[in-house]
Amino acid sequence: MPKIDTFIKGILDILPLMIPVVPFGIIYGVIGVEIGFSPMEVFAMSFVIFAGSSQIAFAQLFAAGASPLVMISSVAVINSRHILYGAVLAEYLGKLRLTWKILLSYLMADQAFSVSSAYFKKNQKNKNVHFHMLGSGLTLWSLWQLSTLIGIVLGNIVPAQLGLEFAIPLTFFSLILSELRKLDHIVIILISGICSVLTYNFPFKIYIIFSAIFSLIISIMINKKFK
């Protein structure tokens, strides 16, 4: 398949997944402004970090007065799932030139990984598979920047009384919907959640990273025990 066709296929494959991404970007933009960041800072996070959930957590922790070390390590834990994506994609992207590896790594967000890794698996003979991820990744990237901008503009208009901050837990909850039918995940969700409210007043706002690591250790123990 020619490069341009593969590229377009990547765009088309990811488009349906963009329906929730756009409101998520808008919510991030609005909340970033309402929390007290400058429009430039809100936008820079979308450009530099380019990982929605960690951006919201980063902004929220900063606003709550967390120490930088806690902010950074929370971002690291939230984004550690990408290591798994990288391990899956390495088989296909490992042979590419350095610039390609860097570009596609930067674009490796959840949805791009999900559609392009599926495409790679099915089209092992296509030598230009990486153009698929360029298409999916760039589409996601552009819409994320655009929706952030819309959110920043709206954030200056939307009244704070609307309580849009409540969209933060709702958005994060919507990201784990697919886990709600798995018993092991429900146990981890409850352990992490209960741990976080109990440790909320620990110093330096370590409750997120503490609860995450605590429940991950429990998840490893559960798996060892039942397998």
Binding site: P169, L175, I188, I189, C195, S196, I208, S215
Partner: peptide
């Protein structure tokens, strides 16, 4: 398990 471990804490 990372999403199920991190997001509930938020």
């Amino acid at each position: 398990y990372v999403p199920s471990a991190v997001f509930p804490a938020i």
